[in-house]
Design a protein around this nucleic acid. Structure first.
Length: 461
DNA sequence: TTTTGAGTTGTTCGA
DNA sequence: GTCGAACAACTCAAA
């Protein structure tokens, strides 16, 4: 008996329930990854993320080969390529890790229609059956805190080790080759991307647990220090299982806080599972079609390029361009700025993030964009989510380390003018080599005025 | 069914 | 500079 193991966003050998189940039940196991043009060229296409994916796959392939097996690479629609491969190797079922997005779920249905039995296993979230976490009334949760309380009580599965050995691939099966990024029609737009792969992921997790986790509660919001885990890309592609991450937390205040952040990931996945239409429209019905979003392209472009004239916003956006990643606190500030100060449709911001973020994840990205746009699951009123970039800089980047790292024009601006450089007297501007309007942009909006207009927009009957 | 407590991460204004 | 109040009433989830 032969089975396929279809890898999607679970690119690891440790703690992999689908792989383990296939090995337990079948003598021959054929691991496969399928490049889908729909994903590579669709609205979530991304050069940086695909490059990261290629690195993960290269390493996964070696890890499987080191254990006696291998990874088959195919190109095309899964519901065509997988039944084809199944026929080649005489497999009747395919094991995979269940996912929550609308696309992943449609794809799984298509596979069933194509006549290949698909067996889904847990492995993306911490909790096994996210859809079955229910309120007492039997419905899905839409507020984080009650979800979190319940989530802490949910049963957990046992963390699995990596298999020691794997059966060899059937002789004669075409293994296929990893494509190059260029051949996929994509380019690496990011200068300093994180390295992909399970090894890098496990190394980073260990380092985080030994180091910054202890002081995580106090430091995770400090932009200049940047003591976050940076595990998000690895969690997105499943180089690490979220369940194993949780299991390895040693306890204590930092662990509690970090675990709560991991719970947000499960929460966003839970919400998207139950409300797939969120992928395209507002979770809150009262805001669907009732807010007149701006589509001002020049302003959007200024935001994308980090040239808004607000140092913290620009630093965040340039970090995204440079690293394919942005500090969470900065994501909130740039998100608030785009949707509240510029009044631009949150979907534009969501799309730009998906293009550059190595950790770009439909559930998390959509959930967080809707949250900061005040159209999602956040119960707080919009006026509490209009962030002042200057106040945020004073609070979370008081020495300007973060801003100066990513906005070099401002390196010599004195601390007291860094949050609002447009208020610098002219001779100070010249002294700092930063003339506003020449070396660094004028602010593209007046925040106080933009705030008043935003409050108007959200005043929906 | 009704009631009750609570809701990630704020900002501004005026005393 | 510091502090408390206002922002605007609403909906979720559990008891």
């Amino acid at each position: 008996m032969t089975a396929l193991v279809w890898f999607t966003r679970d690119l690891r050998v440790h703690d992999h329930p689908a792989l383990r189940a296939a090995l337990d039940r079948h003598r021959r196991v054929v691991p496969v990854f399928c490049f889908e043009d729909r994903l590579l060229g669709g609205r979530h296409a991304s050069g940086p993320r695909t490059q990261f994916l290629l690195e993960c796959l290269g390493e996964l392939s070696s890890a499987l080969a080191d254990r006696g097996g291998g990874l088959v690479i195919r190109r095309g629609r899964a519901e065509e390529a997988l039944p084809e491969l199944a026929a080649e190797v005489g497999a009747e079922e395919v094991h995979l890790t269940a996912d929550v997005g609308p696309f992943a779920r449609r794809r799984m249905d298509a596979l069933a229609r194509a006549g290949l039995e698909a067996v889904a296993h847990p492995g993306v979230a911490v909790v096994d059956d996210l859809g079955e976490v229910r309120t007492q009334a039997g419905g899905p949760y839409t507020v984080f805190s009650p979800f979190h309380r319940r989530w802490l009580e949910e049963p957990r599965r046992v963390v699995l080790g990596a298999p020691r050995t794997l059966p060899p691939l059937p002789s004669g099966v075409a293994k296929g080759r990893l494509p190059s990024l260029e051949s996929l029609g994509l380019e690496q737009e990011v200068e300093e991307p994180p390295p992909g792969g399970e090894e890098a992921a496990r190394e980073r997790l260990s380092r985080f647990i030994r180091g910054d986790l202890r002081e995580y509660s106090d430091n995770h919001d400090a932009l200049g220090r940047d003591r976050t885990s940076r595990l998000s890309p690895y969690l997105h592609f499943g180089c690490l299982s979220a369940r194993e991450v949780e299991e390895r937390l040693p306890g204590g205040r930092g662990s509690e806080e970090f675990r709560r952040q991991v719970c947000w990931r499960d929460f966003h996945h839970h919400v998207l599972l139950h409300f797939p239409r969120n992928a395209r429209s507002e979770f809150q019905q009262r805001y669907r079609g009732s807010i007149s979003w701006s589509y001002a392209e020049k302003r959007f472009e200024a935001w994308c390029q980090g040239r808004t004239g607000f140092p913290l916003v620009d630093a965040g956006m340039r970090q995204l361009r440079r690293a394919g990643w942005m500090h969470n606190r900065a994501r909130l500030v740039v998100g608030s700025f785009l949707t509240k100060d510029l009044g631009i449709d949150w979907r534009w911001g969501e799309r730009w993030f998906m293009r550059l973020l190595v950790d770009g994840d439909e559930a998390n990205n959509n959930g967080n964009w809707q949250w900061i746009a005040s159209v999602g699951t956040d119960p707080a009123p919009a006026y509490r989510r209009i962030y002042n970039p200057a106040r945020h800089m004073e609070r979370y980047d008081p020495n300007g380390d973060y801003v100066r790292r990513y906005v070099p024009e401002l390196s010599d601006v004195p601390d007291e003018h860094l949050a609002e450089p447009w208020n610098m007297p002219e001779e100070v501007q010249r002294g700092a080599g930063c003339v506003i309007g020449a070396d660094y942009p004028e602010p593209i909006v007046d925040h106080a005025e933009a705030r008043r207009e935003a409050l108007e927009r959200y005043r929906v009957p």
